[in-house]
Design a protein around this nucleic acid. Sequence first.
DNA 1: CTTAACAGGTCAACGGTGTTGTCATAAGGT
DNA 2: ACCTTATGACAACACCGTTGACCTGTTAAG
Lengths: 247, 247
Amino acid sequence: MSERVVPPTARRRRRPTKQGVVLSEELIVATALRLIEEHGAEALSVRRLGRALGADPSSLYRYFRHTDDLMLAIADELIGRTLRIWRPTGDWRSDLRDLGLRMHAGALAHPRAAVLSSYRVTGRAYEIQAVETILGVLRDAGFPDAEAVRIYHAFVDQSLAFGALDSASTALPKSAQEGEAGVWRATYARLPADTHPHIAATARHLVADMPRSSYPAALDLLLSAAAARLAEIRARPRAAGERTAAD
Amino acid sequence: MSERVVPPTARRRRRPTKQGVVLSEELIVATALRLIEEHGAEALSVRRLGRALGADPSSLYRYFRHTDDLMLAIADELIGRTLRIWRPTGDWRSDLRDLGLRMHAGALAHPRAAVLSSYRVTGRAYEIQAVETILGVLRDAGFPDAEAVRIYHAFVDQSLAFGALDSASTALPKSAQEGEAGVWRATYARLPADTHPHIAATARHLVADMPRSSYPAALDLLLSAAAARLAEIRARPRAAGERTAAD
DNA sequence: CTTAACAGGTCAACGGTGTTGTCATAAGGT
DNA sequence: ACCTTATGACAACACCGTTGACCTGTTAAG
């Protein structure tokens, strides 16, 4: 079978499907995203995608070597979309907060792609652009280089990790998802105070808090720690920590 | 078929498999963990597990209602193992730091299982014990109830999320893993300063920092933000934030 | 000790999945 | 107008989770 997948630039013969659709990488990615949005993450399968496109499932293998390839293409598109709608204001803290929330929301909108893309470095255009932008925000705010990289790393990984985590729960079958919320109400909220005093004392808060994502809270904690660090650095610029920008 | 799954305590008739194995919930969970470790998360299927146990796949449905149930049992076993080796000292911050690092290390030790279990609420014995313990640490430190739950939630989810994230990268094929590290050296470190000034300025730090986990840094940021919050609460106990313990 | 109930292991089947080898045909360059 | 070949279609393979019906050894009651 030599090479099954042809680079998009080399594609010339646009031959329509039996059902009259002209396939393309873009159309496939767009249709996959639509499928995920409309019928949930578990609705995305090669066969279903083929059916939705009006093409034989095996046709897709002319465009993507396997399902993972397709997922990465979807993920790349998502990074681009997130970055494109983000507008920095100049206030580093609220800019990062906004970007973090957008990245998280983008991941939740496309759970399966988020889980796959969270732990991969692509080195592609959109990713590079994101790195440059975030580092710029931090350095312009006054963080020394080593500190800027440290905080950039924690910030990005936190967004990706929570994006993947929360995506995974939304990708669960509906029944399991309802079950999770029920556990806090049915199991935890009913534990007796004499055996589990701390759970019993906070039961009300647990039931309210636990079924929601903790990403906003975690993000705010990270940003406020970073802000405290920055204040410290500004107060005594040469001896703020173990290292400075010039180390 | 009435009820297929019997509670473990009510099990009496220990009838061996055709191949001579006596099944039990424990044996099934242990075998599943072994399978995951040896052949990867995708190697865990009801059929493969049955084969590894020396039993018909459908036998497992006498012990777990469906695959999800089995996953929860596996997750809980992992929580138990981590909790069992943790010893609190009474200093909330270093206790949580220690526990966080242990959870993260535990996830890395069982990469494929960690990814599966990170996003599930089991409601089983070990998980309940962990919730009670951590909430106790926070409340004893002086956090009001709502704040304790908020920080507990962020702390636990962050540990699980980074555990899953870092596990996923270690679970990559060796070649892909080396490739990821190479991207920072080969692509990012070579970007010209005039188009990507911030990346160029921090390239040295990026190459050193990015291939390592950012979890310790993220954990320290979270804990130091929590400590700052606690100091604030202690200074003006009734008006520290939007809410107090008695809201 | 015998015996009847039934827990629990087995079998076969259903409808789904990703993926591949082979074939047919229409598009495009010549 | 012809020939090449890109690309879509088809059929098949090996998996997957799950279920209903069946069979049999264990156990408790008599």
